[in-house]
Write a protein that binds this DNA or RNA. Structure first.
Lengths: 193, 193
DNA sequence: CCTACCGATCGGTAGG
DNA sequence: CCTACCGATCGGTAGG
């Protein structure tokens, strides 16, 4: 039981580091954030994060991995659900906006912003998860195409659509302008006839 | 005349630095590129770029400013031209794809990728140019809306559309998949009824 | 534009 | 997880 307690405590501190790093990485970028920044923000000394992670890079990878693992289930549920193509697309867009824009959801924005900062070795681990996410989108786009709601090449369509949604990270301010629901409605209305 | 020669020579070296910095910033990011990298690539010693620029930040600002100044005229010509709304939008998308994806066009991708890296003081100088560019897009979107080709809010429409196009920077590989012309056609076909 | 250099910062480590 | 530290790198500068 004491071992279990230690494990839990370690897990919490590790989670603290990941969550805090995500916020800092999102605000200042990976290179603009130092280990000291992260340690300060969670109340550790500058050397202590390396008790939980082998390197700063591994913190970045953990942020991205946790972000993907957190958002995949909801999207998978949408995809296997039996909504009509248009409604399914709307749900997908809405879920993605939540993942990317909701307060405290800093993980996927870090993935989008700082993908380049991740070393090749660690990137390989994340790519599999990212591909899974992309495939889910691809399958919904495929249904749209079959339903005649999209005419162009499915792959390019997916990339353009995800690009439009992902880029909201750069301009959307929570509480200003429209809500995420309104934004989802507008996007669907714009992209589907 | 000797003064004029010196000025020209300086201008060339300065341009070399800007162009080379743009390429390196695009490939490795602003923080991932050192002054030594840039100096090496143009055949200078590490201290010499500071003869042309006060700081690394000013090189970044110069890259972004030059990129905007270079792409504004073509877009302005399109906007004041008398194409029909749909054709005008197509021309705008095509021009923007060229700006962002054509080989050697590294300036605007740097602006998109590393906007955050620019200090507040220098960013203020660039914002005016960037706003001008955005306004040109906004006016074309406005024409689309008046023509009934777009239903949703014009500002959100512009941000989503520009996002889709800007995000191509992250996935498009010149010479692989489709050409810029095909990509422009697909985008227009997708976004307009 | 080069030489020679500095001051600061930063990721990371040894030892406890 | 802390203390104490190091080795490397980096933006930038003085003086020519």
């Amino acid at each position: 039981m004491s071992i279990s307690n230690v494990t839990v405590a370690d897990g919490n501190r590790r989670s603290d580091l990941i969550r805090t790093a995500a916020r800092l990485f999102r605000d200042r970028g990976y290179d603009g954030t130092t280990i000291r920044d992260i340690a300060d923000a969670v109340g550790m000394r500058s050397g202590s994060p390396f008790y939980h992670f082998k390197s700063k890079q591994e913190i970045l990878a953990a942020v991205m991995e946790e972000g993907l693992l957190a958002c995949l289930p909801a999207v998978e549920a949408i995809v296997v659900g039996d909504l009509a193509p248009r409604a399914k697309f709307r749900a997908l867009v809405r879920a993605h906006l939540e993942t990317v824009l909701a307060e405290g959801h800093d993980f996927i924005p870090v993935l989008l912003y700082d993908w380049r900062s991740l070393s090749d070795a660690l990137r390989a681990d994340i790519v599999a998860l990212r591909d899974r996410y992309d495939q889910l989108w691809q399958s919904v786009i495929g249904e749209l195409k079959q339903a005649g709601l999209i005419k162009s090449d499915s792959k390019v369509a997916r990339l353009l659509l995800m690009g439009a949604i992902n880029f909201t990270v750069q301009w959307y301010k929570p509480g200003k302008g429209c809500t995420l629901d309104q934004l989802a409605d507008q996007a669907v209305e714009m992209f589907l006839p």
